[in-house]
Nucleic acid binder design. Structure first.
Lengths: 179, 179
DNA sequence: CGTATTAAGTCAACAATACTGACCTATTTC
DNA sequence: GAAATAGGTCAGTATTGTTGACTTAATACG
């Protein structure tokens, strides 16, 4: 007597789908992690410059002025005010110290002599270079550790984190007023 | 007369090499860009919280205390001092204000009653939540704009940017003293 | 059980860095 | 020539940090 043939079990795999679009995790845990990353990373970054500032007896406000004057030689006082977003009095105290100590020089504008154009002196460039070297060490080490892909990501996130005006200023499409 | 056979010209292509390892650009321009990214991004991030702090009349130091007490309920005073890296006097002024205004409560330790364990009250949690909401908006929007790959990169770079102690503390492998 | 150590608090003075609001001079614009 | 603008100054105030000394309460230790 012929044995009944067992019905074959046939598994038909579903059509191959593309991998799911990666989604950014915006949960509270991730957001709190971001808060901590920003706090500790920025502190680490600024502390290395603080050490350099000790010897000439200057502070972070002085460093910021040196940095942005170095970045924008010939910048006007109001331009610097706009970038730093501080009052005239605040800048005056810092700027006067930098001028008095010979780090910065002021010159009247060529066309509009009301303007005060700020540039770093050689002494100022030297100090700014020390500060830059200290922070470059920290940033370069972080970039090397993280790798080029990560650096691209870091830039994208940081760009998106800042105010639009600051972004425009950094892109060169805005003016100091935008920062 | 038999014509001489032309010698064949044979081109032998070089062995196929792997593509070059992507290199991180650590040039001055990139390093200065990083300085600006860090400055403007951090400012944008902290400014959104500053606005929330206006109404209760508190400052960034108060926010940091609220944040890290919220992160570590029951933290000791010395633990908080270690994370924030400020002096007892500085913390006392901020902490006393937070306690007086009802945002933070202190309790003696169970085993060692010299310790003062800090926790947020409901009022403190509410204010911290407002601050968190403000900063979460900013971070989430940046993360969405940049995308998940970029976020991974951001985290890597920021982790590498901080002091080792802070990294250890964030990983949970270190103690507040490490931060 | 007394001494040393530790956790935390307080005090006064000072410094860095920010703001406010008013007032000033010099220069440019209209 | 008046109005507007760039920049400077002044005095007072606020926030947030440091220093160094001193205190109280609690724990550790011999």
């Amino acid at each position: 007597m012929l044995k009944a043939k067992a019905r074959e079990s046939r598994f038909i795999p579903p059509p191959k789908l593309p991998p799911p679009t990666p989604v950014v995790d915006l949960g509270d845990a991730e957001m709190r992690l971001a808060q901590d990353l920003l706090f500790f990373a920025y502190r680490g970054f600024t502390n290395v410059a603080d050490k350099v500032l000790e010897e000439p007896g200057l502070g972070r406000a002085h460093h910021r002025a040196l940095h942005f004057i170095g970045r924008n030689p010939g910048i006007t006082v109001s331009g610097l005010l706009a970038i730093l977003r501080i009052t005239k009095q605040s800048l005056a105290r810092v700027l006067n110290a930098l001028v008095d100590e010979g780090y910065v020089v002021q010159a009247p504008g060529y066309e509009d002599r009301r303007l005060r154009l700020l540039t770093l002196t050689e002494k100022g460039q030297a100090l700014e270079a020390q500060l830059f070297d200290a922070q470059r060490e920290r940033v370069a080490q972080a970039y090397r550790t993280a790798g080029p892909q990560a650096v691209q990501g870091f830039r994208s996130v940081m760009r998106a984190m800042m105010d639009k005006g600051a972004r425009d200023y950094m892109d060169g499409t805005g003016s100091p007023e935008d920062a």
